[in-house]
Amino acid sequence: MMVWTPAQTRLFLEEAQRHRLFALYRLIALRGLRRGEACGLRWKEVNLDAHTITINWQLVQLAG
């Protein structure tokens, strides 16, 4: 498994700033969420006032 260096992560996030999924990319890059956890995140698990999220489940791709 390849892990990005801090410089590679910074470059990716700088380039992705205008992408509609930028917040998701930033969350994955800076908080270590797995792709399935990030994609399974629901708004009711996001608390903007407390600056927290709760990971309750993840999406899993089965057979292709």
Rank of each mutant, 00 (worst) to 15 (best):
V3N: 09
V3C: 04
T5L: 03
T5S: 13
T5V: 01
P6K: 01
A7G: 01
Q8T: 15
Q8S: 10
T9S: 15
R10H: 15
R10V: 14
R10P: 07
L11K: 15
L11I: 13
F12R: 09
F12C: 11
L13A: 07
L13S: 13
L13N: 05
E14R: 14
E14Q: 15
E14M: 10
E15M: 14
E15D: 07
E15A: 14
E15R: 14
A16H: 05
A16R: 12
Q17E: 11
R18I: 06
H19A: 10
H19P: 05
R20W: 05
R20A: 11
R20Q: 05
L21E: 10
L21W: 14
F22Q: 10
F22G: 08
A23V: 06
L24I: 14
L24Q: 07
R26K: 15
L27I: 03
L27K: 03
L27C: 08
I28A: 13
I28E: 11
I28S: 05
L30N: 13
L30R: 14
L30H: 14
L30F: 13
R31G: 00
G32Q: 09
G32R: 03
L33K: 10
L33W: 02
L33N: 06
R34E: 02
R35F: 03
E37V: 09
A38K: 04
A38N: 11
C39I: 06
G40T: 02
G40A: 05
G40R: 11
L41F: 00
R42G: 08
R42Q: 13
W43S: 00
K44Q: 09
K44L: 07
K44I: 12
K44S: 07
E45C: 07
N47E: 09
L48S: 04
L48I: 06
D49Q: 10
A50I: 01
A50F: 06
H51R: 12
H51S: 11
T52D: 09
T52E: 10
I53V: 04
I53F: 02
T54M: 05
I55N: 00
I55H: 10
N56H: 07
N56L: 01
W57T: 03
W57C: 12
Q58T: 02
Q58H: 08
L59G: 02
L59T: 02
V60Q: 11
V60M: 08
V60F: 03
V60A: 05
Q61E: 09
Q61C: 07
Q61H: 05
L62F: 00
L62Q: 05
A63D: 09
G64V: 14
